[in-house]
Design a protein around this nucleic acid. Structure first.
Length: 781
DNA sequence: CGATACGATCTTTTT
DNA sequence: GATCGTATCG
C-alpha cells in the first residue's frame, strides 16, 4: 500500500521545506547507542559499498533505519532516491514504520522501500513489453506453478509418479534462483527431469507463461535483470534514480537477487548491506551465504563494519549460542560480546541455559506447559514465552497440552490464509472476471462447485485451445456451438460462461467489488455447497470466505485487491497484542525475541533434520546449526532446551538420540537434568549398568514393551531379548554388549543401551513382514 | 462423471 | 496418523 506519489523524483519546494525533519535524535547517536563512534560514523557517512556484519541482537534494523533516515534528513537524497530492500513484507512494514517515526512527513516519500519482489514487480510493470508481457500481467503463486508443471508433464507423456510436477516446479525455481534462463541452464542438467527433458520442460513452461500473460515470483527478478542487461538506457535511468541502496538480511540473497542488486548498484556504488552469515537459514530455497562471504571481492573498496556487541541476552545464552556456532567452518568469524554496559548481560544471577531429557514428547509438552504456568504465576506474561520447533508437526503436542490446561497460545505460520482452497477458489472467480485469459483460474473453478464438467470435457476444451492459441474462456462458447460436448457438461459450461459474463458486466456497471464477491459466492452455488457439507471444516471455510470479503473492503478496486494478494499474500489483520504463548518454527522466529524461549525436540534426525543431512551433507548440517544459533539467540532471559528418548513421528514410535548440538553446548553455562538417566552430557549422565532386572526398580512404567524386556530379566543388559510372543529377534552387531552397558531409556520396549566404544547393535523384530526397530543399542562415543 | 478405496508420502517458507 | 493423488468401480 505504498506507491502513492505518482512522480517519485520530484518534490516541490514547499514539499521539501515541510518534508525536512530534524536530523534524527540530535547527532544520531542515541538511536545507535550500541555502536562505538567509528562504527556509527561508518554507518551514517560511508559513501560507496558498505557491509555491516551484525550478529544476533546487535541492532541490525537500527543500523539500516538510522542510515536511511540520516541520508534523507541531511538531504543527501530525496526519499524517492533511496532504494531499501527486504525479504518479507513484515520486515518492510517495520522498516517503513521506524523510518517514518524518525523522519516524520519526509518518510512518506519512501516509495522504493519494499521486498525484492514488490519492487521488481513495480519496475517490471513499467517495461513489461520488453520481455513479451503486457503490463497487466498476473503473478502466479506456487500452486499455479505446480498445476502448470503438471500439464507439461502430461503433455510430454511422462510418468507423473517418477517425474512429479512438484519436482519440476522445484527445478525451475532453483534455476530462477540462480538467474538461469532456459538457454543458460548447463546442458547436462537436462538429465534432471524426464529423461533429458528438463530444459525442454522449462522452455515450455516459460512459453506457457507468456501466453497466459503471467510470471512467477522468480520471473519478476529474472525479467528485471534481462531488461537491465538489454536496455542500458533503462538501467541508466534507475542508476540516476537510486542514489543510495540499502539491503536487509543480505545473507539470504540468491544469485538472481545478487545480480539485480549489482546491476543497480553500478550507478551510485552506494550499496549498504546488512546481514549475518551465522543466520543464513534459507539455503534450501536458493540463498547463497557466499554472497555475503564474497562481498569485499564483489564490491572493491567496500568498508566492513562488524557489530558484535549484543544487548539482548544473558551471558549464558550468548555463551551457549557462540559455543554451538563455533563448530561451523567457513564463517566470517564474529564473536558475540556481552555488552559492557548492559545490565541484562551482566546479571550474575541469571539462570544458566537448561537442558532437559525426558521420556517422550508428552512429558516434554507437560513440562514446558508447567514452566509457562509458573512463569506466569511469578508475574510473567504468556506472550513473553515462545516455543520454537524445527518442523510444524511438532507443534501439535504443545497445542493439545495448552488447550487442556487453558493456556492461551497462538500458532504463527501454518497454512496461510490465501493458500486455503476456498480462498483460492474465490480468488480464481475474481481473477477470471478480471482477465478472461487466465486459464489456470478457469480450470480451477469451472467445476467447483460441481457443474458436471469433468476431465473429459476439460481435456477437449484444452486441446482446442492449444490448437487455436486462444484462452479457454474465449474458446468455450465456440465449442459449445458445435456438438462436441453434450448433456450435463454442456449445460454446466453454458451456465458457467453466462454467469462469468454477467458478473463481469456487473463489475463494469459499477457494482462494488465486495458486493460482487458475495454475489458470486451465492450464485455460483459455492456457499450452498459448503452449507450442505456438515464436516467441521465447512464452517471454518465459510468464515474464511466472510473474512475474505471483509479484507476486500479495505481496497478501493478489485484490481488493487488482486495485486495486493498476489504479492503480499498475507492477511495482515494481525490479531497481535493478545497475551498468548507463541508456537512457531525456528525459521519463522528469525528477527524476533522473547524473555523465555523453549527449544524442544533436540534429537538427532529431528534437529538436525535427517533430510537436511541426507540431501545436503555437511552443508546441511551447518545450516541446521545456524538454526540452533538463531533459536538460542531469540531468548533474552531464559532458554530451555529439551530432548526425549522416544518420539512419535508420523504416528510411529521411534527411539531417538539426543542431538549432537547438545554436546556442543558449553557445560559451564548449562544446567542439565535428565529424567531418562541420560543427558547427552557426559558429566551429568546418570548411567548405570547391570542386568535388565535393574530396570524394574528404576521406573514406574509398565507398558507392553516394558514387560517384554522384563521377560528377559536376568540376561545381561544389551543382550538381544530372547524370542518372545512369537516374534523373531535378529541381532546384528559386534561384541562388547554384555558388560559395562548402560540402559538409558525404555518405556515402550524401544530401549537403548550404551556399551563400550565403537560398537553398534540393532535388534529388529519381524512379525508382519515389516521390519520394526524394537531396540537399538548404540555406543555413545 | 463422481464417489470410494487404497497407497505413497510426509522439512523448513517468502514472494 | 493424516492427507493427498491415483486407480477403480458404480
Amino acid at each position: 500500500m505504498f506507491l502513492m506519489s505518482s512522480n517519485p523524483n520530484r518534490l516541490s519546494i514547499s514539499q521539501m521545506a515541510s518534508a525536512r525533519p530534524p536530523v534524527p535524535t540530535g547527532d544520531g547517536a542515541a538511536y545507535l547507542n550500541g555502536l562505538n563512534p567509528e562504527q556509527r560514523d561508518a554507518v551514517l557517512h560511508t559513501e560507496g559499498p558498505l557491509l555491516v556484519l551484525a550478529g544476533a541482537g546487535t541492532g541490525k534494523t537500527r543500523v539500516l533505519t538510522s542510515r536511511l533516515a540520516h541520508i534523507v534528513a541531511t538531504r543527501l537524497a530525496y526519499p524517492s532516491q533511496t532504494l531499501t530492500v527486504t525479504f518479507t513484507n513484515k520486515a518492510a512494514r517495520e522498516m517503513r514504520e521506524r523510518a517514518q517515526a524518525l523522519l516524520g512527513d519526509a518518510g512518506e516519500g519512501l516509495r522504493w522501500l519494499g521486498t525484492f519482489h514488490s519492487i521488481s514487480a513495480q519496475i517490471l510493470r513499467k517495461h513489461a513489453e520488453l520481455v513479451g508481457l503486457k503490463s497487466s500481467f498476473t503473478i502466479l503463486d506456487t500452486d499455479d506453478q505446480i498445476r502448470l508443471c503438471k500439464q507439461i508433464v502430461q503433455a510430454e507423456n511422462l510418468d507423473p509418479k517418477r517425474w512429479t510436477p512438484r519436482y519440476l516446479a522445484g527445478l525451475i525455481d532453483g534455476w530462477k534462483n540462480r538467474a538461469l534462463t532456459p538457454s543458460k541452464v548447463p546442458p547436462e542438467e537436462a538429465e534432471l527431469f524426464g529423461n533429458g527433458k528438463a530444459i525442454k520442460c522449462y522452455e515450455i513452461y516459460q512459453a506457457r507463461l507468456r501466453v497466459l500473460n503471467a510470471c512467477d515470483f522468480g520471473d519478476l527478478l529474472i525479467h528485471n535483470i534481462t531488461i537491465f542487461q538489454e536496455s542500458p538506457d533503462i538501467l541508466r535511468e534507475y542508476h540516476d534514480r537510486f542514489r543510495y541502496i540499502l539491503v536487509d538480511e543480505y545473507q539470504d540473497t540468491n544469485v538472481a537477487q545478487y545480480l539485480w542488486l549489482r546491476l543497480l548498484a553500478q550507478g551510485s556504488k552506494n550499496l549498504c548491506c546488512v546481514g549475518d552469515d551465522d543466520q543464513s537459514i534459507y539455503g534450501w530455497r536458493g540463498a547463497e551465504v557466499d554472497n555475503i562471504l564474497r562481498f569485499e571481492k564483489d564490491f572493491p573498496g567496500a568498508k566492513v563494519v562488524r557489530l558484535e556487541r549484543n544487548y539482548r541476552s544473558t551471558r549464558h545464552i550468548l555463551a551457549a549460542a557462540s559455543s554451538v556456532i563455533a563448530h561451523n567452518k567457513g564463517r566470517l568469524g564474529k564473536t558475540l560480546y556481552v555488552g559492557n554496559d548492559s545490565a541484562v548481560n551482566e546479571d550474575t544471577d541469571a539462570p544458566k541455559v537448561k537442558v532437559r531429557g525426558l521420556w517422550d514428547g508428552e512429558a516434554e509438552s507437560r513440562l514446558i506447559a508447567d514452566d509457562i504456568e509458573s512463569w506466569v504465576r511469578g508475574g510473567g506474561r504468556h506472550d513473553g514465552c515462545a516455543v520454537l520447533v524445527r518442523a510444524s508437526w511438532q507443534m501439535r503436542a504443545f497445542e493439545e497440552r495448552f488447550i487442556l490446561l487453558g493456556i492461551p497460545y497462538r500458532v504463527i505460520g501454518g497454512p496461510r490464509f490465501f493458500e486455503r482452497a476456498e480462498i483460492r477458489d474465490a480468488m480464481a472467480y475474481l481473477r477470471l472476471i478480471r482477465s478472461p485469459d487466465d486459464d489456470l483460474a478457469f480450470e480451477r473453478v469451472v467445476n467447483e462447485p460441481k457443474r458436471g464438467v469433468g476431465d473429459t470435457s476439460l481435456a477437449k476444451l484444452q486441446s482446442y485451445a492449444r490448437q487455436d492459441g486462444r484462452s479457454l474462456f474465449t474458446l468455450t462458447p465456440m465449442v459449445l456451438q458445435t456438438d462436441e460436448i453434450k448433456g450435463g457438461a454442456k449445460r454446466g459450461l453454458t451456465t458457467f460462461i453466462d454467469q462469468i459474463n454477467l458478473w463481469r458486466g456487473k463489475l463494469a456497471g459499477g457494482m462494488p467489488h465486495t458486493e460482487l464477491a458475495e454475489m458470486i459466492l451465492e450464485e455460483s452455488g459455492y456457499t450452498d455447497m459448503l452449507q450442505k457439507d456438515r464436516s467441521p471444516q465447512a464452517q471454518t471455510r465459510l468464515d474464511n470466505l466472510k473474512e475474505l470479503v471483509r479484507a476486500m473492503g479495505e481496497f478501493d478496486t478489485l484490481a488493487g485487491f488482486l495485486e495486493h494478494v498476489e504479492l503480499v499474500m498475507d492477511a495482515s489483520a494481525g490479531g497481535n497484542g493478545e497475551d498468548q504463548v507463541q508456537i512457531l518454527t525456528l525459521h519463522a522466529a528469525k528477527g524476533l525475541e522473547w524473555p523465555v524461549v523453549f527449544l524442544p525436540g533436540w534429537e538427532e534426525e529431528v534437529f538436525p533434520s535427517r533430510r537436511s543431512l541426507d540431501e545436503s551433507g555437511l552443508k546441511g548440517l551447518e545450516e541446521e546449526r545456524r538454526l540452533a544459533y538463531v533459536g538460542i539467540t531469540r531468548a533474552r532471559e531464559r532458554c530451555y532446551i529439551s530432548f526425549v528418548a522416544n518420539r512419535q513421528i508420523y504416528g510411529r514410535w521411534q527411539a531417538v538420540m539426543p542431538s549432537r548440538f547438545i554436546d556442543e553446548l558449553p557445560p559451564e553455562h548449562v544446567d542439565a537434568v535428565s529424567e531418562t538417566g541420560y543427558s547427552g552430557l557426559p558429566a551429568s549422565a546418570d548411567a548405570f549398568s547391570g542386568t535388565i532386572e535393574d530396570l524394574g526398580e528404576r521406573s514406574d512404567y509398565q507398558s507392553p514393551g516394558w514387560k517384554r524386556l522384563k521377560e528377559n530379566a536376568g540376561r545381561p543388559t544389551g543382550a538381544p531379548p530372547r524370542d518372545a510372543a512369537g516374534l523373531t529377534a535378529t541381532a546384528s552387531g559386534t561384541s562388547g554388549f554384555t558388560t559395562g552397558a548402560r540402559v538409558f531409556h525404555d518405556k515402550f520396549g524401544y530401549g537403548r543401551v550404551a556399551f563400550s566404544e565403537g560398537n553398534k547393535l540393532t535388534v529388529d523384530f519381524d512379525k508382519t513382514g515389516r521390519k520394526k526397530v524394537i531396540a537399538t543399542f548404540v555406543t555413545k562415543a
